[in-house]
Every structure is written in structure tokens, then in C-alpha cells.
């Protein structure tokens, strides 16, 4: 059996829905891949594209954005902003050679613990197949 690379996925989870969903997966003792670093944000709209780019440039192999289902955003329209930003960001990262499966947006509600686990497992498998991203500048320039 081949060694599966230990990929790291940064998950930006909104506090009201998807982070709660992740918590539910945890307290329900669901088994799912341990490759995710969860980061709680007040709303998916808080996710500045710079955060995503920073994650990739500093070692993340995948980034997951998760928010409330359309219509359910605690701040009413935040998740729509996130969706629009995500679309532009995805186009850009694709131009920069970052494969499709590495950047993902999902709607996960507070009660969808098993959905969270499924998403994480699925994304981990796909990113592991792609391998480590190792985003770094090509040469280290000493001053």
C-alpha cells in the first residue's frame, strides 16, 4: 500500500453554521480524516481572499471555505458575498496552477455533522491524490 501524503487542509468555518456542524461531528464521535486545521470566523463573508492565498503560500495543501446555506446566513447576505468572492478567487488560483480540488466552498449547517465529516473525508482524499502543494518561491535569495 502506498504512503498517503500527510496533507494539511485549512478550513475557514463560519461560527453560526459550519463551525457548529464541525463541533457536532466531533461530539458525535464521527470518524473522519484528521488533516484539517479548523479556523473559526464570525461569517464566511469574513474570509478575505488574502487569507486563502496566505494559507496556500504558507504551506496549506487545500483550503475549505464553509458557510451557512443560502438564505440562512446569520448576517443575512454574508454567504452570498463569500460565494461571489470565491468564484473570482477560484478563477485566479486556477490561473496560478492551483488545482481545482484544492479550493472548495461548501454550505454546511449547524445540524449537518455527518455532512461535514463527508466533505472533509472527500476533500482529504482528493487533495492527498494531488499531493503536497509546497508553494514556495523558486530560489531563496540571501541578502
Amino acid at each position: 500500500m502506498s504512503e498517503r501524503p500527510n496533507v494539511r487542509i485549512v478550513a475557514l468555518l463560519c461560527r453560526w453554521c459550519s463551525y457548529a456542524g464541525a463541533d457536532l461531528a466531533g461530539v458525535s464521535r464521527m470518524k473522519y480524516a484528521a488533516n484539517v486545521l479548523p479556523i473559526k470566523v464570525p461569517c464566511s463573508a469574513r474570509v478575505d481572499p488574502q487569507l486563502v492565498l496566505k494559507a496556500f503560500s504558507e504551506g496549506a495543501d487545500g483550503v475549505l471555505l464553509a458557510g451557512c446555506h443560502p438564505g440562512d446566513c446569520h448576517y443575512l447576505k454574508g454567504n452570498y458575498k463569500a460565494l461571489r468572492r470565491f468564484q473570482l478567487l477560484k478563477k485566479f488560483t486556477s490561473q496560478m496552477g492551483i488545482e481545482d480540488d484544492r479550493l472548495r466552498l461548501e454550505w454546511i449547517s449547524a445540524s449537518e455533522g455527518s455532512r461535514y465529516a463527508d466533505v472533509v473525508n472527500d476533500m482529504t482524499t482528493k487533495v492527498a491524490k494531488l499531493g503536497r502543494l509546497n508553494w514556495r518561491r523558486e530560489i531563496a535569495i540571501e541578502a
Partner: peptide, 29 residues
């Protein structure tokens, strides 16, 4: 990263002045 800043700003204002329907935002860019 000025490019990312602007992507964020552009996405923010691209509201379509519509009812909030997810389908309306797919493919807007």
C-alpha cells in the same frame, strides 16, 4: 496583496440588485 483586495471589493459590490438567489450568482464572473 492589492489584487486580492480588489477581487474582494469587486465581489462585494456585484450585488445584481436582485432577490437573493444562489443561482443568480453562479457564473456572474
Amino acid at each position: 496583496d492589492s489584487g486580492a483586495e480588489m477581487m474582494s471589493a469587486l465581489a462585494s459590490i456585484m450585488e445584481l440588485n436582485n432577490e437573493n438567489k444562489e443561482a443568480d450568482y453562479t457564473g456572474i464572473f
